[in-house]
Structure formats: structure tokens, C-alpha cells
């Protein structure tokens, strides 16, 4: 593995360059510099957004003005109070938590059946679930809206959570994870005659903390970022979610100018909950959230 046959044909200078590059690449300093550089680039839009969120409308438009602005936190205050972002945030939080809990629970049950049960058409059922990844949201909207009306769910919490509490991705991830759990543990459980639900609660869930954390983060972010569907199906403004609220901010203009400071503040506010979830769950995520396959 350590041999270096492919460089044999290279010319000496190019080899020297290569070695030098490699040596640099292997140093710790390189790691920090490269990371810091890459991340600075990735984070640039956020930094600019935070700066602009403190600026007045006129300041935002001065492209050379890169300092914190004179508006201070007033854009945040306006977004939260005048534009009701506080209420939308609560609505979004309720919606997202319901979706996370629902999706994780349902998917754990489904994965339990797929991995630990022998039943006819296993493969077909799994494929049937996976195929739902391929149905784009925009086209589903019209029939789905009709269905919500028929169910009497339109304009309710059910309508913005119900359609999202099952997912192919979550079932897939739990299934892969369960399959990587050592057989000996399963064997023990079977010998002890443990029922499926207590097996799930006592053995599988404790062993899947990282995966559950991972799925929760992804689901939370996905749910939190819903826009198109709530916009269509929720007609009461007081029940609306935060992403639609941000859209309202975009329509807000002051003396004919779009209030970018306000929009940036709204974006930063709406970004905080998903970030908080990421921060809270990043440890288990880093340690155990991986797709393994036996």
C-alpha cells in the first residue's frame, strides 16, 4: 500500500514538486489553514448576512460599508414583533417537533419489521418505500391539497405534519444501522424470548442513539425549512410557519426600497433553531452516525 509505483515514470522535477506538496499536505498547519480557508468561503454569506442585519436600508446598499450598521438590533426587533416572526417561530417549532417525533417513531417501527422479521415480499416492501424519494413535491401539491380538504385537515397542524411523518430516507438509514448491530446481541435477545417492542426499546434504541440523533437533525431541518406546502395549505396567517413569514419580510419595503436589513435579520433568526439542534446533537452525530453495511 505504501509503495509508489505510479510515480516511477514521472520526471524528477515533477516528483520533487509532488513530494513537497505531499509533505505540506501532511502537516498539521496545512489542515488548519485549509480548513479555515474553506470554511471562511463557506461561511462568507452568513457573515455578510449578519453584518447587513444590523444595517439600515440605506447602509445595506452601500457596497463598501462592511461594518456593523447603525440599526443595531432594531431589525431583529421589528421582524420578531411587527412581522410576527415570534409566532411563526412557535408554529414552526411545534410543526417540526411533531414531524421529528412522528418520523423517527414510525421509521424505527418500519425498520424493525424490515430487519428482524421474516415475511413475504420484504424486498418489494422496501423498494416500495424507497421509491417515494422520487416524487417531487411541487406536483403532489394539487392532489394533496384536495385530499387535505376532503379529510377536513386544511388549515390545521395535521395538514403540515401528517404528510411528512413517514420517510424513505429515515427508514433506509435505520434499516442500514440495524443491520450493522452485531448478531450476537440479537441472538441473545431471541434466546431470552424478548418481545419485539421491548427489543426495540431495550436493545435497538440504545444502540442507535447516534443514528436517531442524525435522522432527527436532518428531519428537523427539512421540516423547519418547509415553505411551499404551508403557504398553500395554511390560510390563517396566525398559523403560518416561519419560512412563509420570511417571505412576508421580502415584500416589506420602506420608501420604495426592499428592506434587506430586515430580511437578513429574519434569515438569521430563522437559522437559529436548526443551528441549535445541530449544536445540541453534534456529538452523537459525529461519533456514531454512519452507514454501515454487513
Amino acid at each position: 500500500m505504501a509503495t509508489n509505483t505510479d510515480t516511477a515514470t514521472e520526471t524528477a522535477p515533477s516528483r520533487r514538486l509532488r513530494t513537497r506538496l505531499e509533505r505540506a499536505f501532511n502537516g498539521d498547519l496545512f489542515v488548519h489553514v485549509a480548513l479555515a480557508g474553506a470554511i471562511a468561503l463557506v461561511a462568507l454569506p452568513l457573515v455578510l448576512a449578519v453584518i447587513m442585519s444590523t444595517q439600515s436600508t440605506t447602509e445595506v446598499y452601500e457596497v463598501t460599508n462592511l461594518g456593523l450598521g447603525s440599526a443595531g438590533l432594531s431589525n431583529y426587533e421589528t421582524a420578531l414583533t411587527e412581522y410576527n416572526l415570534t409566532r411563526y417561530m412557535i408554529n414552526s417549532a411545534v410543526m417540526s417537533v411533531v414531524i421529528v417525533v412522528g418520523k423517527v417513531s414510525l421509521s424505527l417501527l418500519a425498520a424493525l419489521a424490515l430487519v428482524y422479521y421474516r415475511f413475504p415480499f420484504e424486498r418489494a416492501v422496501f423498494t416500495f418505500i424507497l421509491l417515494t424519494l422520487l416524487v417531487p413535491v411541487p406536483v403532489r401539491i394539487v392532489p394533496l391539497f384536495q385530499l387535505m380538504a376532503d379529510l377536513g385537515w386544511a388549515n390545521s397542524l395535521l395538514s403540515i405534519t401528517g404528510p411528512y411523518i413517514a420517510s424513505a430516507t429515515a427508514v433506509f438509514l435505520f434499516r442500514q444501522h440495524f443491520m450493522s448491530i452485531p448478531e450476537s446481541l440479537v441472538e441473545n435477545a431471541r434466546l431470552d424470548g424478548v418481545g419485539p417492542l421491548s427489543f426495540l426499546v431495550r436493545v435497538l434504541i440504545p444502540m442507535s442513539r447516534g443514528m436517531i440523533a442524525g435522522v432527527s437533525v436532518i428531519t428537523f431541518i427539512y421540516a423547519w425549512n418547509q415553505y411551499l406546502w404551508p403557504l398553500i395549505v395554511v390560510s390563517d396567517q396566525s398559523k403560518q410557519v416561519v419560512q412563509v413569514g420570511i417571505k412576508f419580510l421580502q415584500g416589506a419595503s420602506q420608501s420604495g426600497l426592499t428592506q434587506w436589513g430586515l430580511i437578513m435579520a429574519g434569515a438569521v433568526i430563522a437559522l437559529l433553531p436548526p443551528l441549535a439542534v445541530l449544536v445540541a446533537l453534534h456529538r452523537p452525530l459525529l461519533e456514531t452516525f454512519a452507514i454501515q453495511q454487513k
Partner: peptide, 13 residues
């Protein structure tokens, strides 16, 4: 165990 997931997927997807 599969019914909840399947019902949601069938109805809404």
C-alpha cells in the same frame, strides 16, 4: 409495524 409508514406513504405520496 409497517402499517403506519405505509399508510402515510400511500395516502400522501
Amino acid at each position: 409495524l409497517l402499517v403506519p409508514t405505509l399508510v402515510v406513504l400511500v395516502a400522501f405520496l
